[in-house]
Amino acid sequence: MAKYYNGVEIEDTFAEAFKMWGTRVIITAINRKWALEAATKMTGFATSVIGCKCEAGIECEVDDTPDGRPGVSVLFFTPSKDDLPKRIMERVGQTVMTCPTTACFNGLDAPDKMKIGGQLRYFGDGYQMSKYIQGRRYWRIPVMEGEFLIEEKIGMQRSVGGGNFLILGENIEVTLEASERAVEAMKKVRGVVMPFPGGIVRSGSKTRSQYKFLIASTNDAFCPTLRGIVKSELPEGVNSVLEIVIDGLDVAAVEESTRVGVMAACIPGIRRISAGNYGGTLGQFQVHLQKVLGEEVLT
């Protein structure tokens, strides 16, 4: 049964999320600008595992870093445990080690660990040095600018990918504004990232296509321009839909992020909040919109 928050219909549906492996990396630098520069590069082109092999985003800026310098926390997710070290190695090696003044630390205290600094150290060609501090090993790799400091091992854990909700609005302006408000609110939740540009997706997909070479294609049921020719899911008056995809280190973080995001998105001009799922047949987690918002706030 449909319920309402702030005059916006909250559909009685759920987001279907999947098991992933996730990690948190802390990047520090001489100042905030260079920490953000490295973090932005590291998390670039990491919107969907379909085309990017991993999903990633900046979680937050960090003041309390291991070396006391300005830092940025980034989260990474891959579908398999084996993929995660490969993706982190590629990205730390090409985007963090190359960035002036940066250092790279483990940000996730988890029993499963992947060797990142312990592999990248070979770039030092035998001149690398290690330091063992407080039970953790760090590698000092000599580089032209000075030294690149990186922790030997970075934690990883079972995580959740593909949390989502759809914002159905009267026009693009109001739908984009609602989406931006949602993302801003969701950025305050720790343990999650929204990996798409600005945290927002306009080209949501379904997991089939009429073309054999494609595993995913446009989500025609939510495309306003196809309302007249497909079995549309759009109510009358909806002319634009944006999706927010959420990856999190655990289900609780994804649920909390969904809750604050949906509430922030419920502004005048938004007709409905929905979510993407496959009928519960594919994903291991279900994030029910009405349940996470709580009966007490819905009418």
Binding site: D67, G68, G146, E147, L149
Partner: peptide, 15 residues
Amino acid sequence: DCVYKPAFLRLIMQY
């Protein structure tokens, strides 16, 4: 060798 700011030293001092 050089004059520089060793990042690892900050780690030790922080500890």
